[in-house]
Amino acid sequence: MARRSSIGDPEALRSSLVELLTDFEGHLKHSDLREQVRELIPANHLLRDLGSSLLRDETAKAARERILRYLLKYVGVVIEGEELMVIGGISEYARRIRELRVEHGWKIITGYTVKDMKADDENGVAEELDPMKPDDYMLLTDKQDRDAAYRWNVAKTIRNEKELSVRDKILKYFRKNVGKEVSGEELRYVAKDKSEWARRTRELRTEYGWPIATQNTGRPDLPVSMYVLLEDRQAPEHDRVIKDAVRREVYMRDKHTCRDCGWNHGLWNPSDARHLEAHHVQHHADGGENTVENLVTLCNICHDVRHRKGENG
């Protein structure tokens, strides 16, 4: 059974470690290889105990709890995996992070997921995620997601459906979670860790017309790398070819507010689940282009009203 790190006084642990390493000079000169290795085992234990004790919190005895406390001190900050190895006092820190995410609902993004998002040119990777390396982590929010364990069980079922493509699996998962925040980590898992998940998610929005919003495409309130299927219906075909970069610029120009009724997401409530859409001033079928100049921001209610009145779409 692996040894668990213990919590102690950091200064006392440091002093013991220095003393042990000082004595090790003699072993380097006079001991054989195996004895040298065996003499370093207590130093390795002390070093792990020292890392585990840096929080100075006697209640955080388990590695998972120490890792969580550390991440909560640096919400929205890129954390290297080796930092979590030190503070957790274990080499299996990645498994503990997965437990925090899957079983306990903490929104932790990994550098592997960000790498997939970057690979899709039209995915708007936020500036704070840009420097993330594969073995980096970021806690997106200090709010725990109580429904996460249930969603991950749903994700596991869909992930194992062999007859579905990656895109179909992602869509099915979104449709099981309409209106709920879904993380890139969940989508990557549903896709069986295939890097194409980010591209397929974008295609569902821009080519197939599913209203999947991100921080850069209609929901500036969302944490980075989070997605929401706003409504369980596809957009009309003429709205499915608007590039994310264009849509984002239109929303930003209009301050993420409906040009007809003044609605924005700051007014959102569960009984009025509106969302924003891009509306063609000159109908796409009549030669209207997918340009910032030919698009305006409308909420889905006002967009439907204009279409019922026979206005351009």
Rank of each mutant, 00 (worst) to 15 (best):
R240T: 13
Q282N: 10
T113I: 14
T214M: 03
R96F: 11
R4M: 08
W268D: 00
P211H: 04
V241Q: 15
T141C: 04
T141W: 02
C261F: 09
K118R: 14
W268P: 00
E25G: 07
L164A: 03
H256L: 05
A2W: 10
A63D: 04
I97E: 01
R101T: 15
A245N: 13
K162T: 12
L72M: 13
S91P: 01
E58R: 14
A191K: 10
D121C: 05
I108Y: 03
D136S: 15
V102P: 03
D147Y: 06
P131H: 06
Q234S: 15
E293W: 06
H27K: 14
G105R: 05
L47A: 15
E249H: 09
E186K: 01
E35F: 01
G218T: 08
P223Y: 07
N312R: 08
Q144F: 03
M226E: 13
G184C: 08
V78C: 06
Y227L: 09
S31W: 09
G310L: 08
S271T: 15
D254K: 00
R205W: 10
K176S: 14
K243T: 11
G310V: 10
E127T: 13
L100R: 08
N300S: 14
S183F: 06
L20K: 13
R202D: 10
E127I: 11
W106Q: 03
Y227I: 08
N264W: 12
A245R: 13
V305Y: 12
G209C: 11
T22N: 11
P131V: 12
G111D: 01
Y227C: 03
A12T: 13
I212R: 07
